[in-house]
């Protein structure tokens, strides 16, 4: 079974971000970029599915500037077979991103398209389900595990306090989250092999985003806290403060 995985290049989640002078984006200098962690789960899920079936190819697709080649190479080093870079501007408007991806993936015969449940920069959680509507494919979000059964795929979804088991007809779009698919480390052999794997580059369909970032700000500073005490004897005072001062209990 052929699988397409959409991946995004994002700042490392351990990174402290700096807002750029124009206050509408972050300053990329000194920032380490990585493949979005959720997309990494999706790549792992695709590799395991193809390996178990002993059939099919994994193609990784990214929309972004030339630096996203590095992200695609990282996925190829994990074991994906082919890469495709759609050169274009990323946007915080997930619909614009979904349209650019749909323009490329329209007509694709890959039964499964996987994405991370969200990108670890915009946190919009929307490109996957939008792509599903645009491609007229059944879509499941927040998938922690799935298995293909004939013409369907059965997914475990993370829901409030439990798991929902959902069956969808193929072809489908799934957005993957943390759970089963702990990503493998790329081996040295994998990294060497990735350099020789096909990585196609073409211009993305130009779609203008309709969400405009007017201003980025840092989160409000929290007021000075207090150490209520050292040791369990401080607990009654903590409870009093929570009740009377903070009105939180």
């Amino acid at each position: 079974m052929d699988i397409i995985v959409c991946v995004k290049r994002v700042p490392d989640t351990e990174t402290r971000i700096q807002i750029a002078e124009d206050e509408t984006r972050i300053d990329p200098s000194g920032v380490k970029f990585i493949i979005s962690p959720y997309d990494e789960f999706a790549v792992e899920a695709a590799l395991r599915t193809v390996e178990e079936a002993e059939d099919g190819e994994v193609t990784v697709v990214s929309l972004g500037d030339d630096d996203a080649q590095e992200t695609l190479r990282a996925a190829l080093a994990m074991g994906a077979d082919k890469g495709l870079l759609l050169q274009g501007e990323g946007s915080t408007d997930g619909l614009a991103t979904a349209k650019a991806l749909a323009a490329e993936l329209q007509g694709s015969e890959a039964p499964l398209i996987l994405l991370g449940v969200k990108a670890a920069d915009d946190d919009q959680s929307q490109v996957g389900p939008m792509l599903g509507v645009l491609l007229d494919r059944a879509t499941v979000t927040g998938v922690t595990a799935f298995r293909v059964e004939g013409d369907t795929v059965v997914c475990d979804r993370e829901v409030e306090g439990g798991v929902e088991v959902v069956e969808v007809d193929l072809p489908a779009v799934l957005t993957v989250t943390k759970g089963t698919y702990e990503p493998r480390y790329a081996s040295l052999k994998g990294i060497m092999a990735a350099k020789r794997k096909p990585l196609e580059t073409k211009e993305a369909e130009a779609v203008e985003g309709r969400i405009r970032v007017q201003q980025l700000t840092y989160p409000p500073e929290r007021g000075d806290g207090q150490i209520v005490g050292e040791g369990a004897d401080a607990v009654p005072e903590l409870v009093r403060l929570l009740r009377e001062e903070a009105n939180a209990l």
């Binding site: 997930g94 619909l95 614009a96 946190d123 919009q124 927040g142 829901v159 969400i211």
Partner: peptide, 23 residues
């Protein structure tokens, strides 16, 4: 922006061809 809302709203946005701001 519940689990249901995060699943539903993007689909509706795509049906209507309008952007969505999440969370």
């Amino acid at each position: 922006a519940s689990i249901l809302g995060k699943d539903l709203a993007p689909r509706v946005a795509a049906h209507l061809d309008v952007p969505l701001a999440t969370d």
